[in-house]
Design a binder for these strands. Structure first.
Lengths: 333, 333
DNA sequence: TTGTAAGCGTTATCAA
DNA sequence: TTGATAACGCTTACAA
């Protein structure tokens, strides 16, 4: 492997000139520039970026922490982050933590040891548990919640949930079930708050029996929905806190002989790509995944470069989209 | 930021001892070890891995090239690669190429410039086009095809496709449609070969009118399926070359008033997680995503470390799984 | 515009 | 078992 010295020798100039020719060509005469370039060609020189990074004390890489890359909503956000990073000359280190704090720590250590310049985390803060992130690492949270602190990009989960439930109420539904995430998950907290706000605004009573706890997986949606099927006073609509659980729930309802949406309406959250292809297509909330990824990367870059953020919190608009999984309640209800 | 010299001073030993205490504790006396560790604690030392990488001329990172991270099958493979990499102390640089050769090249340049030690590519080689990968970069292909060259991990696409079609034939189907990927895609080539083999073995004639070309997206499956709906002599089963297209196709058939599987059977390929939750659940081929990721990472590590591969090609078993989207052909057919 | 030379924080070689 | 010191390949004052 040839190095900058080989190029200098071949070109008959100093290493400084070669370095300048590469990083700041303005400062070099045309003659030298030509010599350097043909020498580079001749010896097949590839700059050692590891040396450059080391010398300039910047890795030009960022860690993206995600609980599960196979989650289709997360992978959309990540694709957008990666896209932006690439544009700006940064690499993305994938940090699939599987929800494990120790793995999270390992990845954060990568920035403490200079292998990355900052961290984007796709996840709401756990309440109570203090963030693992030391103060001196550049950090942005995306897809967080009202309780999230620090630089962050999110949507108004409570408001979005409220819109969904208000829509169901406007259709005439009075008993509206919920399939939630784990009750400790901040997304669950925010979205449940929105649900309760909508009920309250319509003078409907909150009934804890209508809340089924899932964990945001399709499988949990499938299971949680079962308890509604056998209920004497079955809800006529179910608000699911993400699309996967909604898809699972629809499966259960259909197996139980219930028609969606004629017998029971179902709504989701996120608008993953399958939401429009499932049967029936899903009424849900579109999160602006692309914009969220891009904005969070831009914020992180500002932080890395030591600039100030215009604002710590960015709440992006989510869109409520009505498809075919919702309808008026069945006659008699 | 403190460095190894600060630690050495604090501990009253030489930098060499500190370095050894960290990377090869066996070679250091217990006394020194203790002194070093408390000194590290005291000055808050974090080794600069960038310096270490530079000095040892290894980045401990690998690039994973993928056409689209939001593809659920790919993201499963990547999760497995990342998992293995993390175990072995390697980082994964995400390279979502969006199918663009220039982005691919940019990422490959990262290994030429020492920012990564090797590349795993999730994609079949384009036929004809010579690989972009220089001979001196450690490289493994995963999810490739029969035409793929170099170190590789794949399944027997042709054989798996043949099993699917043989099964349909065994149910009594005689007119079996295909929704393929782009005809230039090697996966299409292999899977189509399997389809033709199965027909031939059953003495059924190949009918080009039964082949609809898609591009592996749900949307294309949805569209391609339309041409079958209006056909005078409609196929009684459709072999789709991936699950997304199968899901799109089922959507189209159902909108056209056809029942799946009573009126028309549909099969997929890959067994993405949604395949078991769509309606009806999808008869498909399970690719061993986890094993493929793990094995490809292991092969790459051997290559990086200059060891020989037991074998260049690894063909892993795929499993044919029968769910509810297939049935005997309707009466009269 | 150019060249010389001093680092950056490690690891590795060689003596002690 | 230790320590002094020379690399590693690059950038960047500082001088010329």
């Amino acid at each position: 492997m040839s190095n900058i010295r080989d190029v200098a020798r071949e070109a008959g100039v100093s290493v400084a000139t070669v370095s300048r020719a590469l990083s700041d060509p303005e400062k070099v005469s045309q003659t030298s520039l030509n010599k350097v370039h043909s020498a580079i060609e001749k010896v097949g020189y590839r700059p050692n970026m590891l040396a450059r990074s080391f010398r300039s004390a910047k890795s030009y890489a960022v860690v993206v922490l995600v609980p599960d890359i196979t989650n289709p909503f997360f992978s959309e956000v990540i694709r957008s982050i990666e896209d932006r990073a690439q544009q700006k000359g940064y690499a993305v280190l994938l940090g699939d933590t599987r929800g494990l704090p120790e793995r999270e720590k390992e990845y954060i250590r990568r920035v403490e040891t200079r292998l990355a310049d900052g961290v984007i985390q796709l996840r709401p803060d756990e309440p109570g548990k203090q963030s693992q992130i030391p103060k001196d690492v550049a950090f942005v949270n995306v897809c967080g919640c009202e309780s999230t602190t620090g630089p962050r990009v999110r949507i108004d989960n409570r408001g979005a949930a409220r819109s969904v439930v208000e829509y169901l109420i406007s259709l005439g539904h009075k008993r509206i079930g919920v399939i939630s995430g784990l009750s400790t998950n901040p997304h669950t907290v925010d979205r449940l708050a929105g649900y309760r706000e909508a009920l309250e605004a319509a003078d409907l009573e909150f009934d804890p029996a209508l809340i089924a706890e899932g964990d945001f997986t399709t499988w949990s949606g499938l299971n949680s929905a079962k308890q509604f099927c056998t209920m004497s006073n079955r809800p006529t609509a179910v608000f699911c806190m993400n699309d996967e659980m909604a898809i699972g729930a629809m499966q259960t309802f259909k197996s139980a002989g219930l028609r969606v949406p004629e017998d029971i309406s179902v709504t989701g959250f996120d608008d993953i790509s399958y939401a429009r292809y499932c049967d029936p297509s899903l009424t849900t909330v579109t999160q602006p995944a692309e914009e969220m990824g891009k904005l969070s990367m831009d914020m992180l870059l500002r932080l890395i470069e030591g600039q100030d953020l215009a604002q710590e919190e960015n709440v992006l608009p989510a869109e409520f989209v009505i498809r075919k999984s919702t309808n008026v309640p069945p006659k008699g209800d």
